[in-house]
């Protein structure tokens, strides 16, 4: 394996990005992907104390919905640490994730507009109401998918596309679909959606050769909002590193 990795940011924002890494083995690339999905802990609501719930949903259904709301997760929490949040909304109104009041200013819903439950007026004339306290706990994606910071994290090989000649005069023009990121002969990196994933759009009338670039992987990283893409990648790497250190310590008697 190479001593140094070459990392290039292709494009993206805080929530979604494409990152090219050179000098990886397939095993290490997959290890990083798995670490980002299952080993980076996030805060999620896990327990409720329901004071009043006269909505159309059962307490458990509300609990599941609240659990799936992503919460911003600073890196100074330990496994099992909890944060208390509260929700108090009276109908006719809709309770949104933004109505959750947190006891820690650094921990708050990453999206404020997720509808939790719509509260109406009952036939008896009373307004439906929800009041509860919730405990968010820090845990990782191995215990529950709601604790996973990464969404649809994956990678593809970087592909090198080179022109080897002209297409035969009487050959049929067929679409040549390729998804991911290609490297042109000039070394330019082009995401395939720029030419509708069809190589014949970019190289009309040419005969092409497409091959994998060894050791180069294009990661597609998307987060649920509990941290930025950059933090997710760094925490994933930290988790691999700390486990490798632990192994080394245990093996060296």
């Amino acid at each position: 394996m190479a001593d140094e990795f070459d990392v290039e940011f292709i494009r993206g924002d805080d929530r979604e990005a494409r990152i090219l890494v050179r000098g990886l083995t397939p095993a290490f690339a997959n290890g990083l992907r798995r670490a980002m999905i299952a080993d980076v802990p996030t805060l999620s609501i896990d327990t409720l104390r329901v004071v009043e719930n006269s909505s159309v949903m059962f307490d458990e259904m509300i609990g599941l919905r609240l659990g799936l709301v992503p919460l911003t997760t600073p890196d100074d929490f330990e496994y099992g640490d909890t944060v208390t949040l509260s929700l108090d909304v009276e109908g006719p109104d809709t309770a949104y994730s933004g109505d959750l009041e947190s006891s820690d200013p650094d921990v708050k819903p990453a999206d404020e507009d997720i509808p939790i439950i719509q509260l109406n007026e009952n036939p008896s004339g009373e307004n439906q109401r929800i009041e509860l306290e919730a405990e968010a706990v820090l845990d990782d994606g191995k215990s529950h998918a709601k604790q996973s910071g990464g969404v649809a994290v994956g990678y593809r090989h970087l592909r090198k596309v080179s022109v080897v000649g002209d297409r035969g005069e009487f050959d049929e023009e067929e679409t040549n679909i390729l998804r991911g990121v290609i490297e042109t002969e000039d070394g330019e990196l082009v995401p395939t959606d720029e030419f509708d994933h069809d190589l014949t759009e970019r190289y009309p009338g040419k005969e092409l050769e497409v091959e994998d670039v060894p050791g180069a992987f294009v990661f597609h990283v998307e987060t649920d909002g509990s941290m930025t893409v950059e933090e997710l990648v760094l925490r994933g790497i930290d988790s691999i590193e700390s486990r490798a250190d632990e192994l080394q310590e245990k093996v060296a008697v």
Binding site: L68, D111, D113, I114, P115, I116, D224
Partner: peptide, 20 residues
């Protein structure tokens, strides 16, 4: 009943887009 908070398959938060 209400729009699910996340996509069942991939886990992306989609609830926030429902009203629009």
């Amino acid at each position: 009943m209400m729009i699910p908070v996340r996509c069942f398959s991939c886990g992306k938060v989609i609830g926030e887009h429902w009203e629009e």
